[in-house]
């Protein structure tokens, strides 16, 4: 197995035969990663726990087919994302309506240009936000903002900006057009950026 250490290979072989301790030792180091990936997509504690349980069962079932071409953590993470996407498909989505989220942040004058641009603060996200990234407050703000997004917007933001999927792959997977992917992505980014305004500009959003 190219992508795995000898200890991990041994754990995989023992876990595949049904050794539950070996399975625990194999998965435990990656459990936070697996849980986080699922939670980003589902955004709900109970659904996340169920999907994680399903994913762990799938990982165990498919262990004999794992050839070690990638790292176990990467392979397991993919299984977890698929479990989250499956769970998302099957649950009743009451949060999916297209809402009138802004596509731009004003204020604008009647010609669509910024009003008094000299008095508008300049966005400095890249410089200041990285400095603030360690702050728990920032994590909580982003988590809250992600929770506020409609499901069908959050999934696009997560797959594109957090998981680095291609736009076309997202469109194919969600059975929507690439244009719809970009529009939902843009709405999500604008909303998240509006929430981050507090941190980036030091004022209230």
């Amino acid at each position: 197995m190219m992508g795995t250490s000898s200890t991990e290979t041994e754990l995989i072989q023992r876990a595949a035969t049904g050794d539950s301790d070996a399975f625990g030792a194999l998965v435990q180091p990656h459990l936070a990663l697996f849980h986080n990936g699922i939670h980003r997509i589902l955004g709900n504690v109970a659904d996340t726990q169920d999907a994680l349980q399903d994913a762990l069962m799938s990982i165990h079932r498919d262990l004999p087919r794992f050839e070690g071409r990638s790292r176990f953590s990467s392979w397991g993470y993919k299984v977890c994302l698929n479990a989250a996407l499956m769970a998302r498909r099957s649950r009743v989505r009451i949060h999916d309506m297209e809402r009138a989220e802004p596509l731009a942040l004003g204020p604008f004058d009647e010609r669509g240009h910024h009003q008094e641009p000299d008095h508008l603060p300049e966005w400095q996200v890249e410089a200041q936000a990285h400095h603030l990234v360690e702050k728990q407050e920032m994590r909580e703000c982003l988590t809250r903002a992600l929770d506020e997004l409609p499901d069908n917007h959050r999934i696009v933001f997560v797959l594109k900006d957090l998981e680095d999927w291609e736009t076309e792959d997202i469109a194919r997977h969600l059975q929507i057009t690439a244009g719809t992917v970009r529009q939902r992505l843009h709405r999500s980014r604008v909303l998240l950026q509006a929430r981050l305004r507090t941190y980036v500009l030091g004022g209230r959003p």
Partner: peptide, 30 residues
């Protein structure tokens, strides 16, 4: 505004990185 949009994925990835210790719900699922 464009710089902000471009920076957002990096900021979000760092901010929303998995915690070092898995949450209790994850340990329970395992």
């Amino acid at each position: 505004f464009l710089r902000g949009l471009r920076a957002l994925p990096g900021v979000a990835k760092h901010s929303l990185a998995p915690p070092e210790v898995p949450p209790e719900a994850a340990t329970r699922a395992l």
